[in-house]
């Protein structure tokens, strides 16, 4: 009653909200890149604390190796079954090994590993750092003259950038092996032929693509995890920690997908890698 029907206020309000949101996410992205820049700067400023890095490497490795292996193995099995069934009508089921290995090496190996780690490691980094923030531990670091970026972000960033490609090698092998198990046991495929084909189509370029992707995903997961952890307000409390943690995992997943597309474009179309 009080609002005449032609009142443009609601749509204006909507536009304002959208504008605010957009501005907010842009400024957040800016802050995240600033943190990334400072992290890279701090990596090259001695001293590098190897014990902190070692601790993170072990933590990530131990926590994720089994999940990465299992995920890789089952993805490979599914690919083997699907590939075989799809290729069979055209009588080219012999290429199934190529199909599995090429997909796993270039796409699914890095992707699956990154997905597992964004859920496990990215989220736990955010939970840990945001808890430290709300319990004033970050303030305590600062007041004792220690740079929190150097002390907390650098080891996590390096560990993720190193462990992601490392684990990707594991998940890739698990995937190729999964495909082998699937086609050999279910369809009576010749195992020696499978291995020969895998060896034939495993190019250096493909491995390079896999490792470049994995390293980039690792950097993204760590950078997002740390940024979401640090950007929580001290007044956020336990609720803020929860929100930041789920936020971190979701943003990592989306970023990995987008990054994968961008990297595919750069690596295949621009650099011409196979």
């Amino acid at each position: 009653m009080s609002n005449p029907p032609s009142d443009p206020a609601p749509s204006n309000e909507f536009a304002t909200i959208i504008k605010k949101r957009l501005y907010h996410s842009l400024s957040e992205t800016g802050d995240a890149f600033r943190l990334l820049a400072e992290t890279i700067f701090q990596i090259f400023r001695p001293p590098l604390q190897f014990n902190l890095l070692m601790k993170q490497l072990l933590l990530i490795g131990f926590n994720s190796l089994s999940v990465v292996l299992v995920s890789g193995f089952f993805t490979g099995m599914v690919l083997g079954i699907q590939g075989y069934v799809q290729l069979k009508p055209y009588a080219v089921e012999g290429s199934v090994a190529k199909f599995v290995s090429v997909s796993v090496v270039k796409e699914l190996g890095p992707m699956i590993t990154a997905f597992v780690l964004s859920g496990r490691i990215g989220a736990s980094i955010t939970a840990e750092l945001s808890t430290m923030k709300v319990t004033e531990q970050i303030d305590a670091l600062e007041v004792m003259g220690t740079n929190p970026v150097k002390h907390l972000v650098v080891p996590r960033f390096l560990a993720c950038s190193i462990m992601l490609p490392t684990l990707t090698i594991f998940s890739t092998f698990a995937g190729i092996f999964g495909g082998y198990v699937a086609v050999v046991s279910l369809f009576g495929f010749n195992g020696d032929f499978y291995i020969l084909q895998v060896q034939k189509y495993l190019y250096v370029g493909s491995v390079l693509i896999s490792l470049i992707k994995a390293t980039s995903f690792g950097m993204a997961i760590a950078a997002i995890g740390c940024y979401k952890g640090f950007s929580i307000s001290t007044a956020g409390g336990a609720e803020g920690v929860g929100t930041a943690t789920t936020g971190s995992a979701v943003i990592s997943l989306v970023t990995i997908l987008v990054l994968d597309f961008v990297l595919n474009h750069i690596l295949f179309n621009i650099l011409g890698l196979v």
Partner: peptide
Amino acid sequence: NQIRRKIGMLFQSAALFD
């Protein structure tokens, strides 16, 4: 940070590293 080395601070929540 140079100045902070002269300062010791006890936080209300103690803020110990877990």
